[in-house]
């Protein structure tokens, strides 16, 4: 408990230190430059919190990230299980997936904007594209990692093919899927912002773009602060969710002190 408290204090000290450095850099060496001091950014932030526009922009960002992440999770896991379990699926998709894997979502952004315009669908598709491939790949790896003895056990008790997939293969692959989701959650947020910043999609990305275009630097950095905190929340929630669903896995098992 004491050690925990000390750790917390040190962390808080780190944050305060970073803020002080920001304040110093913005007011002394770079005074009058484009970087607003923390104080001005913070004032701007409090004003933002009172505006309805800010909240709807925040809601857009969260909604698009979650929609993209959720659809990528559902489709990625289903495809991953099929590809991992049935060889014809694997041979049919392998080349295409390997080709798409190294393409970052930003590369296809112009094309997607051309098709959908600066809309929610555009941003959603981009998030989906960026998240689904790693989820498929990890699910396939998880399926291959399933213990043959566990699978034989299920078969020996007369469980059918779909039942084995749903009740044994899927849970066996969960540790891999969990890792993929933990990485994908913050990525979904980043891609949503990029879709707004560069593609004009709704949300905080577009707000940042507009603040920059209008030369409103305090408000630009206030948005950046909000994004930073949102990122922390995404990461925290996905970690917690992973820990919750995988409490049984060797890496999370609670070992009681002797």
């Amino acid at each position: 408990m004491n050690a925990q408290l000390r750790q917390l204090l040190v962390s808080a000290g780190g944050i305060v230190g970073a803020i002080l450095i920001w304040q110093f850099v913005a007011t002394v060496p770079m005074a009058g430059g484009p970087l607003p001091p923390f104080s001005a950014t913070f004032t701007e932030l409090t004003q933002l919190l009172a505006s309805g526009e800010f909240w709807s922009s925040l809601a857009d960002t969260i909604l698009i990230s979650l929609l993209g992440l959720g659809s990528a999770a559902v489709i990625g896991v289903v495809l991953g299980i099929l590809i991992g379990s049935f060889d014809p699926f694997r041979y049919a998709t392998l080349a295409v997936l390997e080709f798409l894997k190294p393409i970052p979502p930003i590369v296809i952004l112009p094309l997607v904007v051309l098709i959908y315009g600066p809309t929610t669908q555009m941003a959603w598709f981009l998030v989906f594209f960026g998240c689904v491939l790693p989820i498929i790949m990890q699910t396939v790896a998880g399926v291959h990692d399933a213990d043959p003895v566990t699978l034989d056990t299920a078969r020996s008790y007369g469980m059918g093919r779909t039942e084995v997939l749903a009740r044994v293969t899927l849970p066996s692959a969960m540790p891999f899927i969990g890792t993929a989701m933990r990485v994908a959650a913050p990525a979904a947020l980043v891609i949503t912002v990029v879709a707004g910043l560069l593609g004009g999609g709704p949300g905080l990305g577009r707000s940042i773009y507009q603040a920059q275009a209008g030369g409103d630097y305090p408000s630009l950095y206030a948005y950046v602060l909000v994004l930073g905190m949102l990122g922390l929340i995404f990461q925290g929630v996905s970690r917690l969710a992973e820990r919750r669903t995988l409490h049984w896995h060797a890496s999370y098992r609670e070992v009681l002190p002797a």
Partner: peptide, 8 residues
């Protein structure tokens, strides 16, 4: 047996 039981 330890691989035959479902750990989850």
């Amino acid at each position: 047996y330890n691989r035959s039981l479902m750990p989850w």
